[in-house]
Amino acid sequence: GPIVLQTYRSIADFAKSSTTEMALQAGDLVDVVEKGESGWWFCQAKNKRGWVPASYLEPMDGPDESEEQEPNYEGEPFVVIRGYTAVEDDEMTLQEGEAIEVIHKLLDGWWVVRKEEATGYYPSMYLQKSGQAQ
C-alpha cells in the first residue's frame, strides 16, 4: 500500500550549506521520508527534496513526544569517533578515541554526554556505541 508520510512545519529559516540539504523558510510544510539519528531528516516538499535539521521542524499533529527517549542517567557507553571543539558553552570538547557515556539521545542529533564530572551536548554522528566495529 501507499506509504503515508508525516507532515512537519518549519519553525525557522534554514539556509542550506551543501547540495544534499534543503533550504527552508519558516512556515514551510515538508513530508519527512527518513529520520536519521544524526539529527538530519530527509524531507520532500512540492518540487524539492533534501536533508533538513530535525530541530527546525515541528509536527503538524502536535508534539510527537513518543519518539523522544527519556534521559538515562546511568549512561550508555560510547566512543568518540571524531573530535569536536565546543562552539557554545553547553557543548563538550572531545578527542577521537575518548570513552564517554550518553545520558540523553535527543532527536535533534545533539546528545547529552558525560565524561567524568562534565556533561554537555555532542554531535551524535561523531559517536559510536562501545564495542562495535566502525
Partner: peptide, 22 residues
C-alpha cells in the same frame, strides 16, 4: 536511493525551538 546525509553535524536548534523547551 536516498542520498547520503550531510557529513557535518546539523546546526543546534534555532532559538524558536529552545524557547519551547521546558
Amino acid at each position: 536511493t536516498i542520498k547520503q546525509p550531510p557529513t557535518q553535524p546539523p546546526p543546534r536548534p534555532p532559538a524558536e525551538a529552545r524557547r519551547k523547551q521546558p
